[in-house]
Amino acid sequence: MLTNPVWAALSGPQACFAEAAGNAARYLPEIAPFAALSDPADPSAWRDLATITDFAIVTGPSVIPLAGWRTESVTPGVQMIGQSMSGVDDPDTVVLTEKDVPEMLELVARAKPGPFLKRTVDLGRYLGIRDSGGKLVAMAGERFRMPGWTEVSAVCTDPEWRGKGLAARLTLAVASGILARGELPFLHAVHDNDNAIRLYGRLGFTHNADVVFGAYRI
């Protein structure tokens, strides 16, 4: 399941956010740019994908697109799991909802944690920290959800507020909510984001697999 998390999510608990065709599925375009195939090595699954989108970000241990799909970028990453970690609730966090999306998008533009769109917040519980003036300065939330596992995602801090431990607090708080449901947290990081990988290691996440994030267009 962890080797193909987007497929496990879109064919399982997050099917309500999916557009699917045969052995391929994608998140609705306002939710996330990710797509998945039941078997990335199956040419017919790539043909199914072409019937629902002409662009997709596909992740897995290895992704080789079918001829006709142009590779726009391939970013190596790591998958980490929190199989034996403990979450920590944080009384200073606030739950972020649809009304907070404009602020969340502004923070994402400043902090650049990765894909986050107008309805990404619908995928799960998002938490934020605000400064004394009420400005959103850090956030984290849930993205891919599959049986037994939920991904911690969009962990980001305003550049002016980095170094104060906000990312760690939010990651632990989001993980706490996941663990409280009887699920386990996991996450992804770009392979050369050494600071983030070290932080997640200190919080109790361990390396599970090397992965790639490939952007493909037909």
Rank of each mutant, 00 (worst) to 15 (best):
E72V: 13
E142S: 12
L166K: 03
F55E: 14
G82S: 09
V121R: 14
T97V: 12
N195K: 13
W161K: 05
P61A: 14
Q79D: 06
G133T: 09
I81S: 14
I64P: 01
P61V: 15
L105R: 02
A138D: 03
V58M: 07
L187Y: 02
L105I: 09
Y126G: 10
E183K: 07
L170I: 04
L172M: 07
A35P: 05
T3K: 11
R47S: 15
D158A: 04
P113G: 07
R70S: 13
M146R: 12
I178M: 00
G148A: 11
Q14G: 00
A15R: 14
F144K: 04
G68A: 12
D42K: 00
R202V: 02
D192H: 03
T120K: 07
A32H: 13
G214F: 00
G82Q: 00
M104G: 10
V211D: 05
A138P: 04
P33W: 01
A138E: 04
S44T: 11
V78W: 01
M139R: 01
S73L: 13
F205C: 10
L203K: 06
S84R: 15
A167V: 09
S86P: 01
A35H: 05
K135M: 14
D158C: 01
A24E: 08
V63T: 01
L28C: 05
K135C: 11
L96R: 01
V211C: 12
V95F: 02
T51E: 15
M139E: 09
P29I: 02
D192P: 03
L170G: 06
G68Q: 05
L107A: 06
P33R: 00
Q83W: 11
D192C: 02
Y126C: 10
N208A: 15
I52S: 13
N4E: 09
F205Y: 15
G12M: 02
W161E: 12
D131H: 10
P61S: 14
T51Y: 09
L136W: 11
R162G: 03
M104K: 04
Q14N: 04
A18S: 10
A36H: 00
A9D: 06
Y27S: 02
D158M: 03
D194F: 14
N193M: 03
P65T: 06
G87R: 01
